[in-house]
Design a protein around this nucleic acid. Sequence first.
RNA 1: GGGCAGCUAGCUCAGUUGGUUAGAGCGCCACGUUCACACCGUGGAGGUCACAGGUUCGAAUCCUGUGCUGCCCACCA
Length: 1031
Amino acid sequence: MHELPKHYDHAAAQKRCRELWDAGQFWHAEPDGDRPAFSVVIPPPNVTGALHLGHALNNTLQDILVRTRRMQGFNTLWMPGTDHAGIATQAVVERRLLEEEQQSRHDLGREKLVERIWAWKEQYETRILGQLRDLGASCDWDRTRFTLDEQCGRAVRETFFRLFKQGLVRRGKRLVNWDTFLQTAVSDDEVFHEEVKGHFWHIRYDVIDPLPGEPTEVAVATTRPETLLGDTAVAVHPDPAAALDAVEAELRTKLAAASAKERPQIEQECADIASRRDAVLPLLVTLAEMARAGRRVRLPLLNREIPLVADEWAKPELGSGCVKITPAHDPNDYEVGLRQNLPMLNILNPDGTLNAEAGTYQGLTIRQARTRVVADLDAAGQLLQVEDRLIELAHSDRSKTPIEPYLADQWFIRMADLADPALAAVNDGTITIHPPRYAKSYLDWLGEKRDWPVSRQLWWGHQIPIWHVADVTEPDLKAAFGDREDVAWTAAGDSPETGLPGTWFVCATTESLGLETIAGQPLTRDPDVLDTWFSSALWPHSTLGWPEATPELATFYPTTTLVTSRDIITLWVARMVIMGLFNTGEFPFHAVAIHPKILDRYGETMSKSKGNGVDPLDIIDLLGADALRFGMASMATETQDVRMPVEFQCPTCSTRIDQTTANRTKPRIECPKCHEAFRTQWATTAEDLALPRGSAVSERFESGRNFSNKLWNATRFVLMHLEGYHARELVTEGTPADNLPLEDRWLLSRLATVTAEVTTAIDGYHFAEAARILYAFAWDEYCSAYLELCKSRLADPDNRDGARRMLLLGLDTILRLLHPIMPFVTEEIWQHLGHAVADRRCPWDSECVASAVMIASWPTPSAAWRDAVTEERFNTFLAVVSGIREIRARQNVPPKTVIDVAIRCAATTMDLLEPMQAAIASMASCNLTGLGPETAGAPGAAETTAAGCDLFIDLADLIDVNAEIERISRDLEKLTGLIKAKRGKLANDKFTARAPAAVVEKERSQLAEFEHAAEKQGAALNALRQRQAST
RNA sequence: GGGCAGCUAGCUCAGUUGGUUAGAGCGCCACGUUCACACCGUGGAGGUCACAGGUUCGAAUCCUGUGCUGCCCACCA
């Protein structure tokens, strides 16, 4: 019989387990049709950098589901891969290029830059996949994909082509977030807003040749005065009176429903409207008439004449009621420009300087132009007023420079029709979202059916499969492409915003069209790439081989469950639903499980730039992958996000130092205990880098590490006692035999109950509950209760085998149930157990036990094992043991001292406790001197009650009378309070009349129990007082 | 501005359809290392369940309101 070392060595175990699983390729799935399939696609991590704790959480939960289903016999596939992450990756590589080589991407050129990014991708993909394996993720590594690989590329082109052919692709102007530093558009989620002090400038535009009775000027206001250089109109509401009425009517409705607190503010707003009727309405009415008459105003500084237009975008209830229109630099103004057929003047160069449209301001930066424009307006007497104002200014997350809104040609996908089935799928429960409240953000967002802008002015990504050609006719195109099915075209003129007669957009499913020109005109590939979410949207089917009709697609699509975090429900989940259905006719998954986000001790999201993150590998190194996973599972509750206080661990003395806002961005920290310094992620100087690195960890993973060790030692105990054990079937199905000891029937019942509870919890994505149930069962019941109980049986050769059999059954079952959460320690133990008793067999093993717990079958204990009465009786026994232990502890009785205990209890309880006498004696280190209804305590014995029994503990000279009096008095006081409350409750006729009988009965019996206990305590107290008096 | 959460022990969190004396882990206190495990054992202390009303025989749980915190979306001439 081999003996295990005292401590579980997680590093060695992880290595051995991975080798074992890889050798057997237990994670590999083939599309064999017989078994039901269970499939999951990984949310592909970005190749921008290494994995963080959020990924660890996401992938732990997926692996729990996947390992559970695999053990349950499903044909289980977990598809791994990574995401090319467009802008994010390109920005990282560009930044390095600039820092290390002082080169911009334009210096390098498109091809060279993309090569560099591929090199980066290779490096990080390797690292990410390695981290996933370190975490224990049981992905099908043979199938690893990348959103920019050739297979995904084919799917992307095919999808775009189909959309194009169905007229769902359009080209239009869109205001993009222009990063003037990187000279690229960035998406909304790569923009952060920061409140800065700014101004609100009121500017006067003069009316050209005012007629009598007309105003000579209009006032407009802006926070961006330089944009007036791009103004092409001033708008006023076409019917300001009606508009004011409508606003007021809305306010009245709101007022009627308002709370007392909101009321004054709304009343104030109503008053403002009323005063506007006198103050500005007549002017606005005149201006509206003037707009209709085609009157014009003079744009200050540039002296351009621009029209006054009547448009509902101008709100008579705000400001002057007039608004300047800059169609090329503001999204709302752009809409006005379209409606009013206004010119769109782009005044910006890509580098953020002003172009020729800005006249004398050409060449200035935005900032310089603003200063000049304001000064010039002031000098010209056109500046009416300047207010200070706080402005939410958009900044690029990548370059940290202010974003300029910039109008550019973009490709869009029309969502109006595509969105409907995706909405219906969630509304009618075809796709379920857990927890259900997250369905709302999905439905709200999709419900808007906003067109999806899919083009990006980047070099890293799937290049849009569109070619432009000008000055050709449709017959030219037909002649060039004949009846090719992989090519389609549309006249650019069909896109009224951008089209020129004779220009065409040609779309193809192939990387190249195979020709350079049509009728002598060059075909030019559109330089833009697709939004990174476009390829992500295809992930569930593109990874399975679509558009080919592969066996994988037939077997594993639709996938079963998607596990992700809530911030990408709209960006990713909704789009997968839409594109999955569009391409395959089926939704990509049946269920979406949303998990929480991990925050730091201040409730802030973790990020590398804040310095409050934790590297999962640090946790894995220090505490083990299972500890990390157990911690993650425990945190995955469904109600809220999780706060995780982070600590630095001193590499010299292992002291933990709280990570705070003050120290988290320091390059070096000195340990307050050993005074040795260590470096952090911020270290840059050679001196700092030479220091040992301090890991960022969290105590929240320690219970997982401790749990691993507990299981390890329980195993150690079991293996130590297997000498001479002959392996056999561990237990048979069906109702347990009556002659089994109480504790064995209890264990069987608990195994059945716990298995059912854990299975249900995992099925419902209640990961934290599953973790908690298993922890409590394995630790408190299996180790603290059952294993302790077995000690006396194991010492008795006649009883030994029964105990061993049940110990093995319990351990074996715990390992299986816990394997999805803690795969390494359970596998390592399984292997050791296999050496000792390879041919043990559980009822749920059809033949012999599996060679690895990873491929063992999930327990399915017979329902007949469950026995609520036995569980309750066993708790009585445990309560008696606790009662004795409590007195011992109170009285400071040394553990080695055996004390005499007598138990007075009802006859039924006596029957129960009789066979447990040896167990009570060993677990409470006592000698049972009496048991039964007639038992009495020795004179002067300490007395307590537990589970309806009176316990007399003969402490003889050991007792501390004063302490005991104090304790009993306190208990009695507490009991008196409880009794009073219960009596009051039961005296209430309404309670007894209306509450369910069972509840009333429970209260009654409880009261009786309390009263009995109080009586005993009272008597004991008196006895003690007498004793105190007599000494 | 709209929406969604959260507020329970010193800290981080559970608490299923209202019904035991509201739980766990960590931390804390006391005692304890021959006998699986000090990454441990035994016992203990610690909570007006954010606040105010309401419904109910009974509220951490349901309703209304208030406060604070966080997140998402929209908007900001």
